[in-house]
């Protein structure tokens, strides 16, 4: 662990970059933002033991890779046509943990729209998701990497539509 200070400005650089990669579907690069054991978690019940409770997403590294390959390489109905997304990141705070990792708390609003024939059911409508997104950031060889991305959607235990784009 180096003495690199990972304050709000550094945290903003990381999460803004992540938002851009997600919106631009630069997902192979997005994979490199995580540590080798990084977890991407979108819980339904964040207080229940993860092994006893189904999540919207619980991706260990190979599952993250699978998600990216699925979205980039394989056509499937829920993304035919595709979604466009815009991630807005705000309220960024970075606090050092006893472990030496940093907890970066953000609020995010994700706007999403399916392109295609906007006269048809499910297409051409802007959907809005809001939530807290918490990152556990570990400094590895001087690089800040995401050890955990946890997305706490406001409506996490409620009815969801199609979430097959990148949150």
């Amino acid at each position: 662990m180096t003495n690199l200070v990972f304050g709000r400005r550094q945290a903003e650089a990381l999460v803004y970059r992540e938002a851009r990669l997600l919106d631009d579907l630069e997902l192979d690069e997005w994979l490199t933002l995580f540590t080798d054991d990084g977890i991407y978690w979108v819980p339904i019940d964040e207080n229940a033991p993860v092994d006893e409770s189904v999540s919207i997403i619980y991706d260990w590294p190979l599952r993250r890779e699978e998600r990216v390959r699925h979205l980039l390489d394989i056509p499937f109905p829920a993304q035919s046509p595709r979604s466009r997304t815009m991630h807005l990141v705000s309220n960024v705070e970075s606090v050092k943990q006893e472990s030496g990792e940093y907890l970066v708390r953000t609020n995010q609003i994700i706007h999403e729209i399916r392109v295609g024939d906007f006269s048809q059911v499910g297409l051409g409508v802007v959907n809005v998701l809001a939530g807290q997104v918490h990152y556990t950031v570990r400094i590895v060889n001087g690089n800040p990497l995401i050890a955990m991305k946890k997305v706490l959607l406001l409506n996490r235990e409620m009815p969801q539509g199609n979430l097959t784009f990148m949150l």
Binding site: I44, D45, A48, E52, S53, V54, I56, E157, M158, P159, Q160, G161
Partner: peptide, 9 residues
């Protein structure tokens, strides 16, 4: 035991 997955279409 788990909370359910809920979807609307």
């Amino acid at each position: 035991r788990s909370k359910p997955i809920v979807a609307r279409y």
